[in-house]
């Protein structure tokens, strides 16, 4: 059965690693839902967080092929409930909404969002939360016909245990 699986990979910060990793998905015709690459807590080592819907049998084969890439130091797959996951999203909203709430801060408070920018034609709000929370606000604003633009970060994750232990071992050697 298709479920969401998140692969977390630590790699050398080298040109082409991203391409080699996405090829492992492409070959099996798996669509990547979200992908985030950033420097890990160790300089020169990148952390990839890639989310896709597939089966456990397939993701296990994909992760083995990712590990085979010369510049990949470690890769593992997780289900969302194994990770602490948050996303950040920005919403550009028509300023006519402010009129309905009287004040801008009242509006942001009522949506549990942070006010980033405010001018006569629009308001930019920021929200941090789970994927569901982010999407719920998006849908809500869309229904009201006030959402002008929307952008999101992709998942920022932490494992309850340390994922980077292996990296520290490398660093200490």
């Amino acid at each position: 059965m298709n479920k969401e699986y998140i692969i977390i990979a630590f790699t050398e910060n080298q040109i082409g690693v991203l391409n080699r990793i996405t090829i492992c998905y492409l070959r099996r015709k798996i669509n990547i839902e979200s992908l985030k690459v950033s420097e890990s807590s160790i300089k020169g080592i990148s952390m990839f967080v890639i989310s896709a819907f597939t089966t456990e049998e397939i993701i296990d084969k994909v992760v083995k092929q990712i590990r085979n890439i010369t510049d990949v130091i470690e890769a593992n797959y997780y289900t969302p409930d194994q990770l602490i996951t948050q996303e950040i999203a920005l919403y550009k909203v028509s300023s006519k909404m402010v009129g309905e709430h009287g004040r801008v801060d009242a509006l942001s408070r009522s949506l549990s969002a942070r006010l980033i920018e405010f001018n006569p034609s629009y308001v930019v709000l920021e929200k941090t939360g789970t994927r569901e929370e982010i999407e719920q606000l998006r849908d809500d604003l869309q229904r009201r016909g006030v959402l002008q633009e929307f952008t999101r970060s992709g998942s920022v994750v932490l494992h309850r245990d340390s994922l980077e232990e292996i990296l520290h071992e490398i660093e200490n050697n």
């Binding site: 296990d60 084969k61 083995k64 092929q65 590990r67 085979n68």
Partner: peptide, 8 residues
């Protein structure tokens, strides 16, 4: 010697 072959 290739882990990815095991169980593939």
């Amino acid at each position: 010697i290739d882990r990815a072959e095991l169980g593939k």
